[in-house]
Design a binder for these strands. Structure first.
Lengths: 183, 183
DNA sequence: TCGTATGTGGACACGGTGTCCGGTTGACTA
DNA sequence: TAGTCAACCGGACACCGTGTCCACATACGA
């Protein structure tokens, strides 16, 4: 069980990191910055979070778990009960929402190509894979990554910030991918 | 005009970089490694190539330009003349080939989120955008990134090395994306 | 052959990372 | 409430990669 001072410091660290990630690109936030802002020594920081990615993951955890919960047990069309194509569309809409609200965190959690290694990615993957199977789509394994790739935070950020597309435009384009479920 | 010794050193640098990128992940290759292997000082290296990405871009340049040439003036279905959907399929096949042969280079050229900033990406983007327009697809702008996203080197590498998919499986999944061109 | 501009290479300073250890403090027990 | 111990804290430190700078070398033109 966690000691009171340790819990207190963890909270301070997460709070500081959230502020810093919000104000500049994640790769410009050093571990030292976070420690300073949290009023905590380097050793304390590294004890729990070996790198930036793990902090961002911790910050995202709540939001991702909530979405996962809704996918598993929520109301249709996000949850079980609706046709696969509609569920996929709902999933895309929810992911756009998540990216819009927390893209700086998601970006922060991606050092190199570690995106595929997080538990969350595995979950999204399994979910889409299941939808493809339910729809009877042939060769679902290769198709999963194709359907998930446009949700990469860099892609979303590029569309939003450089191309100036709206979340609605992006969501609409993604929704059209659901026709992949027709064999 | 370039001095003879400078040209010689440039060749040595590119050769050394190609060898190093081939044997380990690009982020594990330091500028120092490249300079050492090329038998060249750090200053010389930095004079031409300010970072790893620019070296990888230089190495890729030939291959990318050749593909661009074939897209613009080659035989159908890759070049002009075939229906848009077939041209897109041919483009996907060619890109899979490029990724298969040079994925380590492409990965090396991506330090940070610079992928979208390279000239090559702009070219692929314009090409796919034109195909979408020619096919009369509505809202092509948002769709372009969706169709290009699965070609990200990390995605390809993950499919090949972690999931163990074959180039053919990947190409097949990509080919199915061409149905996006039917309105 | 000589002068000059360009190229060269290694030394250097800087900044970020991750580790380590002496001191501190919270939690549990009697 | 006092004592004990394990967990925690935090800053100093060493390491590594980056990018710059400048004294020297060399190719090219006159």
């Amino acid at each position: 069980m966690e000691r009171a001072d340790a819990a207190h410091n963890r909270a301070r660290i997460l709070e500081a990191a959230a502020l810093l990630f919000a104000e500049r690109p994640p790769q410009d936030v050093t571990m030292d910055d976070i420690a300073k802002k949290a009023g905590v020594g380097r050793g304390t920081l590294y004890r729990r979070y070996p790198d930036r990615a793990s902090i961002a993951v911790a910050l995202l955890d709540d939001h991702e778990r909530e979405l996962q919960e809704r996918l598993l047990r929520g109301d249709p069309p996000l949850g079980p009960g609706a046709p696969p194509a509609e569920r996929l569309a709902a999933f895309y809409a929810a992911m756009v929402r998540l990216l819009e609200d927390h893209s700086h965190l998601v970006l922060g959690s991606e050092v190199g190509r570690s995106r595929f290694e997080t538990g969350a990615y595995g979950f999204w993957r399994a979910h889409v894979r299941a939808l493809l199977s339910a729809a009877g789509t042939p060769g679902p394994d290769a198709l999963v990554e194709v359907l998930l790739a446009p949700l990469a935070p860099e892609v979303y950020g590029y569309q939003r910030r450089v191309l100036g597309l709206s979340p609605e435009q992006i969501a609409r384009a993604l929704a059209r991918l659901t026709r992949m479920l027709d064999r």
